[in-house]
């Protein structure tokens, strides 16, 4: 799914997520008001526990807010039934995780094909696309390997390929460099920036590091679950 230029792709109003932990409650994020236009590269910053991951989980449809409004690419994620959320995750967003989260029993190529296959796509059509993506990411010779046989950088590039297989409008990356050395970390950020630049995707990167700063078109700082106007100090 492609989103037309200049259009607001993400819109939140008073978005709040409160977790219940036994008798006590923990505020994940509180009253977040946000508008993100298509083709932005947003760097989401904040210390541990600031609410970055909570915000990403809401934007990706992995979790539902406690209150507020949330629209992503025209989908009202507050009211969306479970089936619509599943479709949303398949078609609208692509996720990249800190721990790569590749399925260990599948090969690199199979991991990349997985979201498209889950969406009901034909393997004959999906595989050439996955091969193209892997070759573009420099993993052409690793397609038959198991995740356990890859380096950290290779695993994260595989995860990026997987995030792209369904051609999503938005890429959400949660600490994508957190488990990588600086060289591989830089490479991954460059790839995400290239996606934003050449493939016209909206990319949101939650990170502690400054690696993505140079490519960011927008920076959001979170502190104690709220957006802060002051400069981020991570």
């Amino acid at each position: 799914m492609r989103v037309s230029e200049k259009k607001t792709v993400i819109e939140t109003k008073a978005l709040t997520r409160i977790y219940s932990l036994g008798d006590s409650e923990v505020i994940g994020i509180s009253s977040i008001n946000l508008e993100i236009a298509a083709r932005e590269l947003v760097v989401l910053k904040g210390n541990s526990g600031s609410g970055k991951s909570t915000l990403l989980s809401l934007l990706s449809g992995l979790d539902r807010p406690t209150s507020g409004e949330l629209k992503v690419a025209g989908h009202d994620l507050i009211k969306a039934p479970e089936e619509q959320l599943t479709r949303f995750r398949r078609e609208v967003v692509g996720m990249v995780f800190q721990n790569f989260n590749l399925l260990p029993t599948l090969s690199v190529l199979e991991n990349v094909c997985l979201p498209a296959l889950l969406a009901g796509g034909w393997p004959e059509k999906i595989e050439p696309k996955a091969i193209d993506l892997l070759q573009w990411l420099g993993l052409g010779d690793r397609m038959a390997h198991q995740p356990a046989q890859l380096s950290g950088g290779e695993m994260q590039r595989t995860a990026i390929a997987r995030a792209l297989i369904n051609d999503p409008a938005i890429i959400l990356a949660d600490e994508p460099t957190g488990n990588l050395d600086s060289r591989n970390g830089q490479l991954v950020i460059q790839l995400l920036a290239e996606l934003h630049r050449t493939r016209e995707r909206t990319v949101i990167i939650a990170t502690h590091s400054n690696l993505a700063d140079a490519f960011a078109t927008m920076e959001i700082c979170l502190k104690d679950g709220m957006i802060t106007d002051t400069t981020c100090e991570v």
């Binding site: 479970e82 599943t86 398949r90 995780f97 989260n101 889950l118």
Partner: peptide
């Protein structure tokens, strides 16, 4: 748990 959640994140439904 983590693998199943990953499946969910990449588009698998509860039913699947």
């Amino acid at each position: 748990t983590s693998q199943l959640n990953t499946l969910y994140a990449v588009g698998a439904s509860f039913g699947q």
